[in-house]
């Protein structure tokens, strides 16, 4: 299954998703595609006007440019996601998108998709094992790619 993680650039969550046999939907891949696109010349991460325009499907034109840019980049992730894991209140080392309003709005957009979603709170290092266990339990009960095709078939 394609699992969207939040924070969308969290390496730790992406790793857990892959360990559970799913495909992680992460921002790094989206930015990677932008950066490798030879036709875009807007370093460092090649965010373009098109990304900002794409965000207008979800946010008003009056929103700050950085918020539009972030939502514009995240939108394709939303479209791909079949399930999601939202880890809230994690320290920046777990990945972050930086802008609190963009973060809050993106979580809202994930909930709007009505896909299977686990919302879990980071409660410090001492409870990390419990947190990881909770995430893994959610992930392993989700059908794998092959299983979905079999069911569909």
């Amino acid at each position: 299954m394609k699992i969207l993680v939040y924070p969308p650039n969290s390496l730790i969550l992406a790793d857990l998703v892959e360990r559970a046999g799913h495909e992680a939907v992460v921002l790094m891949r989206e930015i990677g595609e932008h950066v490798r696109d030879a036709e875009i010349d807007a370093p460092p991460i090649n965010v373009t006007e098109d990304d900002l325009k794409r965000a207008l499907r979800y946010v008003s034109v009056e929103e700050p440019a950085g918020l539009k840019g972030r939502i514009g980049l995240l939108t394709p992730l939303l479209d791909k996601a079949e399930a999601s894991v939202i880890l809230s209140d994690a320290p920046p080392t777990y990945g972050c998108m930086g802008c609190a309003v963009a973060d809050e709005f993106f979580k809202f957009l994930i909930r709007q998709r009505k896909i299977p979603t686990l919302e879990i709170k980071y409660e410090g290092k001492e409870k990390l094992e419990e947190t990881v266990k909770g995430i893994m339990e959610f992930l392993v009960q989700l059908p794998k790619e092959g299983e979905i095709s079999e069911k569909k078939g």
Binding site: V47, A65, G66, K68, R70, L73, C99
Partner: peptide, 15 residues
């Protein structure tokens, strides 16, 4: 800055 690169204008600033 708080991430100007997301506004798509960083290339212009650097230039």
């Amino acid at each position: 800055s708080c991430g100007t690169e997301y506004s798509g204008i960083q290339w212009l600033l650097s230039d």
